[in-house]
């Protein structure tokens, strides 16, 4: 039962990664692409990690996975902001 739930969560996570990548290809400009990547990947990785934690059933590994999620979140959100800021400032100075 838990494994079925874990598989569903992992598949849902992969679905959001795919949606983010499609957004990266389909969205028209740099900022919109950043939206697709950061938000979809955040949710995708979160679901993936909950699924993996359920599957592995080890509280220490679950904590470690949570830590990975937080690190990816912090890195992703910060780099998205920095890329957007760089692009925006350059646009304004042209």
């Amino acid at each position: 039962m838990t494994d079925i739930l874990a598989s569903l969560l992992i598949m849902a996570g992969l679905f959001f990664f795919m949606a983010g990548s499609i957004g990266l290809l389909r969205f028209p400009d740099l900022y919109s692409r950043l939206h697709a990547l950061t938000k979809a990947d955040n949710l995708g990785l979160g679901l993936l990690i909950i699924g993996l934690a359920l599957h592995l059933r080890d509280p220490l590994i679950a904590l470690k996975l949570l830590l990975i999620w937080l690190a990816v979140l912090a890195a992703g959100a910060t780099s998205a902001h920095l890329i957007a800021r760089h692009a925006r400032r350059r646009e304004k100075h042209v």
Binding site: A19, G23, H35, A36, K39, A40, N42, L43
Partner: peptide
């Protein structure tokens, strides 16, 4: 946020 952006991309 994730669901919203996924819907818009797909």
């Amino acid at each position: 946020g994730g669901i919203d952006v996924a819907r818009r991309t797909l």
